[in-house]
Design a protein around this nucleic acid. Structure first.
Lengths: 257, 257
DNA sequence: GAGTGGTCTAGACCACGAA
DNA sequence: TCGTGGTCTAGACCACTCC
């Protein structure tokens, strides 16, 4: 009895069991079914419930642990840690993060621009994007009406063909640039790196963010790459405030010698 | 035939097979055995070589992929991406990162200090550390003689009992504070979060880093937690330059609907 | 079509935690 | 002691890549 026989009576299996179980458990988690700080069902219980093997359900639980939602302890079981693990990278949806905490994110499209040859901004871009037509989308992100981030998204004009203002909603979940790049422009990426540096706010940003010129702010520069290693898009974010990360999944305890 | 029977003729097995294979492959990777951009052996070959099942060797390879060293593609195989994936969190060893790139990291112990009650720095610490005796270790980190980071490490004085200057070597791999906390003070942590914010260099830092006062620099604040959820230590890092991250492991491609 | 990774299973034994 | 997670296996079939 093969997996696809079980899960898909017909054509479109596509969603692996571990992914289905992951999503279902996460939904329940967020719905408060397993209270924060409380115990979760055991691996065996979950495996029985989802009708999968223990290996498979463990894979789902691995993802939840890595996401930072739950933690596990041998002999003791799983406990819910938090419903909103922090992670403020360019690849996590700011929109979703705000919605999750009950705040109101909005966007203001400032400009859709084809960079003219010789534009000095090419110097800031990954070299791979240089030497071709590049489109830059500039948006201001606000929370409860207050400016929080200035975002420039760069990609080869080929990939953003016919980008129009109406492609960039200013409210609701659809305003997420990551979602737009995927749904509207069919971009996909599988790897990325980000660099965070401190800069002084210039006059323009000072006005946007309502701070003094020269105030230190953060600049996040993120490159996303496709399966073939080609740069898919580049994003530059200027933001006030700080960014946070959950590092738990990075800890490799050198207990073994 | 159980795992421990195979791997450990006697007492101290402890190192799982997937960990052994992971380390061995990583060693070879760094030794240049599989050139960057080149193909790696297949899962079956590695499984045979290490005399483990494919599931186990896949776990080792998962770790390498997550670390950012290699990438895999269905139907094609594994390729080496880089020998030095970026990740500049407080929980990655600055010492090791520098040594890996052939540069010379050194440290200068500035102070070992028991915070007096009512010290204003308590306000910066996680609330959990407040209300008890706290020790602060201040060190300056240099690369090729140039100051790069100012690091304050805070922990309950209980945990840093009898900390002496000689506990903090100023050269070599042993200067890593993470290593010192583990080996000398037996601290262990399994979760952590980090917050990065921009600050203006004050007069002291300006002199340390040889920059103008008011120049934007980065402040990293990191809390590390033990198995029981208690804060083990808190670290505050001021640094010039930027920090970089490999985000590849965070990408959850929503291909499945 | 051959080769390679992607997913999945059923069953086993060990190590740790709590009662 | 018992329950829970930690590790491991041998074998299976599918989906994708490349020839």
């Amino acid at each position: 009895m093969t997996p696809s026989e079980i899960m898909s009576p017909d054509i479109p299996p596509a969603i692996p069991k571990y992914e289905q179980a992951y999503r279902t458990i996460l939904e329940r988690l967020k719905a408060g079914r397993y209270p924060v700080g409380g115990r979760m069902p055991t691996e065996d219980e979950l495996a029985r419930y989802f009708k999968v093997s223990r290996v498979t359900i463990r894979r789902s639980l691995d993802m939840l642990v890595q996401d930072g939602y739950v933690e596990r302890r041998q002999g003791s079981g799983y406990r819910v840690v938090t419903l909103s693990p922090v992670s403020d990278t360019c690849l996590t949806s700011f929109t979703d993060a705000m919605l999750r905490t009950g705040r109101e994110p909005t966007s203001r499209l400032l400009q859709i621009e084809n960079l003219p040859a010789g534009d000095p901004r090419f110097a800031e871009l990954p070299s791979e994007l240089a030497g071709q037509a590049v489109t830059c989308i500039s948006r201001l992100r606000l929370v409860d009406g207050k400016a929080q981030m200035l975002v420039h998204t760069y990609a080869a004009s080929d990939l953003l063909r016919d980008a129009q203002p109406q492609d960039f909603p200013e409210t609701g979940p659809a305003q997420s640039i990551l979602r737009i790049l995927r749904s509207r422009f069919m971009l996909e990426w599988s790897a990325a790196c980000e660099d965070i540096s401190p800069v002084a706010a210039n006059a323009v940003m000072a006005e946007i963010f309502d701070i003094d010129a020269g105030t230190p702010i953060l600049k996040q520069a993120c490159s996303a790459f496709g399966d073939t290693g080609k740069t898919v898009f580049f994003e530059e974010v200027f933001r006030t405030g700080s960014v946070s990360f959950n590092l738990s999944q990075q800890i490799r305890i050198p207990t073994h010698n």
